[in-house]
């Protein structure tokens, strides 16, 4: 039982981590907690769905439940979701930034944006649950007592690749350096010749792409619903804060902690209380480490 719960925890945690990295990036560079981030997950998942409906499915790849068309849809949905994030930024957040609105005004605006984006999904794609494929896979026992689906292994593997890739980009590319400079001090970054709006745009693209991928993974392993992002929102924000905003690996660890806690908790307490578990952990952690697990203590 425990083995299965841990395996499931890693899977949930991986999806949460992809979402949490996006939240963490935007809170460092854009300086606010984006409550509409979860809607980018939903949009990404639905854009990919639309694309797979038009494309010929293609034969499933090896043991996986989907064909090449979904992989291509991942790319396309990632890009389009990034574009959507930029459009929202143009319409709402950039205007607020140019007025030097404080960060909580941005948070409230993101509440409103979330309401609009979520209900647009409902209008466009309808309320029913949808699936990328109606084929049901039977899990194989990879270790005694631990069953995993090929899709799940694929999702975990791709998540690890994405995180490492992102780490390398942030560390070594020019864009990554500009982003880190912005996170440290926007004023200083500007003096050093970093183009603020360009960095902001790329931040949205990266956050949007990761969100779309997390959304597609969630849709692939569970199902697509207009509220799917919203239902993940609190877990994602919790993961981002738990890890300590400001660190890539912090967000990953935060995601894994939340994922594992949810899955392990039901072995100890009634499942009715599962939804409260991540918060209890969050409040405990913040009580002793207000800056999060890996965050640097506030010195500003």
């Amino acid at each position: 039982m425990i083995g299965q719960a841990i395996a499931d925890g890693f899977l949930t945690g991986g999806i949460l981590a992809l979402g949490a990295i996006g939240v963490s990036l935007s809170s460092q560079i854009l300086k606010f907690a984006n409550f509409s981030h979860s809607e980018l997950l939903t949009w990404g998942a639905y854009i990919a769905l639309t694309f797979t409906m038009f494309a010929t499915a293609g034969a499933p790849i090896g043991p996986l439940s989907f064909g090449w068309s979904l992989l291509f849809a991942v790319l396309l949905a990632g890009v389009l979701t990034g574009v959507l994030a930029i459009i929202v930024d143009r319409l709402v957040f950039r205007r607020l930034r140019s007025r030097h609105a404080n960060s909580l005004t941005m948070v409230f605006a993101s509440f409103g944006v979330a309401l609009i984006l979520r209900n647009l999904v409902l209008l466009i794609w309808g309320p029913e649950a949808q699936y990328y494929t109606s084929e049901l896979q039977i899990a194989t026992e990879i270790l005694p007592g631990i069953r995993l689906l090929p899709d799940q292994v694929f999702v975990l593997g791709l998540t690890i690749v994405l995180v490492i890739g992102l780490h390398l980009i942030l560390k070594y590319s020019r864009l990554g350096m500009s982003m880190r400079a912005m996170a440290e001090s926007p004023a200083l970054a500007r003096v050093c010749g970093v183009k603020i709006e360009t960095v902001v745009r790329w931040t949205w693209v990266v956050a949007g792409m990761l969100a779309a991928i997390a959304g597609i993974f969630s849709g692939l392993t569970v199902q697509l619903r207009p509220e799917m992002g919203f239902n993940l929102l609190l877990a994602i924000l919790t993961a981002a804060i738990l890890g300590g905003s400001g660190s890539l690996f912090g967000a990953v660890i935060g995601g894994l902690v939340v994922g594992l806690a949810e899955n392990l908790s039901v072995l100890v307490i009634p499942a009715n209380f599962k939804a409260a578990v991540p918060f209890m952990i969050l409040i405990l952690v913040l009580y002793f480490r207000p800056q999060g697990l890996l965050g640097k203590s506030e010195t500003k």
Partner: peptide, 9 residues
């Protein structure tokens, strides 16, 4: 977001 934990239990 997922009911895996409940099912597992």
């Amino acid at each position: 977001p997922s009911y895996r934990a409940e099912v597992n239990s």
